[in-house]
Amino acid sequence: MILVVAEQRDGRLNRASWEVVAAAQRLAAKTGGAPIKVALLGGDLAAAAGELSAAAVAEVLTVEQAALEPYTADGFVAALAQLVAGQAPTYVLFPHTYLARDFVPKLAARLDRALVADVVSLAEADGTVAFTRLIFQGKLAADVVLEGEAPYLVTFQAGAFSADLAERGASPAPVSRADVTIDAALIRQKPEAPFREAKQAVDLSQAQRIVAVGRGIRARDQLPLAEALAKALGAELAASRPICDAGWLPIERQVGSSGQTVAPKLYLALGVSGAIQHAVGMKASKTIVAINKDAEAPMFELADYGIVGDLFEVVPALIKELQR
């Protein structure tokens, strides 16, 4: 059996859950058609469970407990350790979200079972399933096999499998409650309500064109070069996270999973490698241009147009050309 652990917040299903259902269906097909169950944990799960029951799966299991709302790592690990022991799945699959990153490694350690994280596709090796993940900043792909006893825990990168490919069932899957006992006194984390920082002055999501700078810009005092290009294009300036971490540009100009999500007509990336956490914030842009000295940079996988070269030579030439 393959167990998918779906994710919800305030009763709303995270769309990444459907991506993992799609991944589970592919894994099932590769491993002899094992049945799939989907588990949901939290306080009030009726709506999310109803939505998931449309999937072509054997069963939707809800673990509804006051101690699981709001989320805590200790609460989720306690609940899932019992659920996994009771259900005895071969694989337990999760989306690789911030939430999963927070508790899945602890669950794996508690169960003493293998965990392969941030998987982008399935592969084969020596007649068994291998999981492909990107390492060395996306420069290499590694097919990984898991050792030791089942269950094997796997988290999937956002977008690795398309939610639209998740097969729907002919009739709704049964929804049933799974009982676990959680001793609330053993939950050590006391979470407060999530919040956003004060409204930002710049709203990059409205920009028609964006020039984004990455670490390739090298120094703060090189930023005027990128600003001049932005001006010549009528574009807003944005950046990868390390540029904002260093304080060279304000955080409101950061694009990516922990910054803004943008979809301009033109996204021109200067010396940005194209890490997944950056890509999720800009890949919906209509036209993407990458200027990078490394021909193997993952950003070229996203770009419509690319120039392999030194940005300090290409950008002045571009500015000149635009001003002609």
Partner: peptide, 11 residues
């Protein structure tokens, strides 16, 4: 280790 790389290549 619980996981082992069996094939490493350019993406």
């Amino acid at each position: 280790s619980r996981q082992r790389i069996v094939n490493l290549y350019a993406p």
